[in-house]
């Protein structure tokens, strides 16, 4: 269930914490396993992580459902996380989200038909002085305009 490569990455995180506190690595372990499984966590993968870290399955499930960055439904290869909190809102985020939805033909929370892109509305991403902004996978894109969004999204493959 967990690849050797994933185990190696998880082990790197385990090392940061005191002996016997390996469950501290659960947040990263879930992300690592998610990344290897189409950006999604399943019941079994959560259990596998729990087993690997020697913690109860429900404890890993609590973590997997508490934090935003785990997906429990199919998502795109690229996830666009569009901030719609106050600073971005003041700078026109709502219109830009509508623009993006039209461009991709999906609503927020959905995945494009080709499975390439999904869009999520999220709370403040801590880049308010660059509003409006979104995050695609690991990267922030700030001071967005409709044109800029078109360029960025067109470049996704």
């Amino acid at each position: 269930m967990i690849s050797d490569n994933a185990k190696k990455q998880i082990d790197h995180w385990i090392e940061k914490y005191p002996q016997g506190k390996q469950s501290s690595a659960v947040m990263e372990a879930l992300k690592i396993v998610q990344a290897e499984n189409d950006n999604q966590l399943t019941h079994d993968s959560i259990q596998a992580v729990a087993d690997y870290l020697n913690m109860p399955g429900i404890a890993a499930a609590e973590v997997a459902t508490f934090y935003e960055n785990y997906n429990h439904k199919p998502v795109g290869k690229h996830i666009i996380r569009f901030c719609h909190n106050i600073s971005c809102m003041l700078n026109g985020a709502d219109d830009l989200i509508a623009h993006l939805e039209t461009k991709l033909g999906v609503k927020t929370g959905e995945v494009t038909k080709d499975g390439l892109i999904s869009v999520k509305k999220v709370e403040c991403l801590g880049a308010c002085v660059g509003a409006p902004m979104f995050q695609i996978n690991d990267k922030y894109y700030e001071n967005l305009t409709a044109d800029k969004i078109d360029d960025i999204v067109d470049g996704l493959q």
Partner: peptide, 10 residues
């Protein structure tokens, strides 16, 4: 001694 119930979600 077995955590079977938990609080999921936020």
């Amino acid at each position: 001694g077995m955590m079977e119930m938990g609080g999921t979600g936020r």
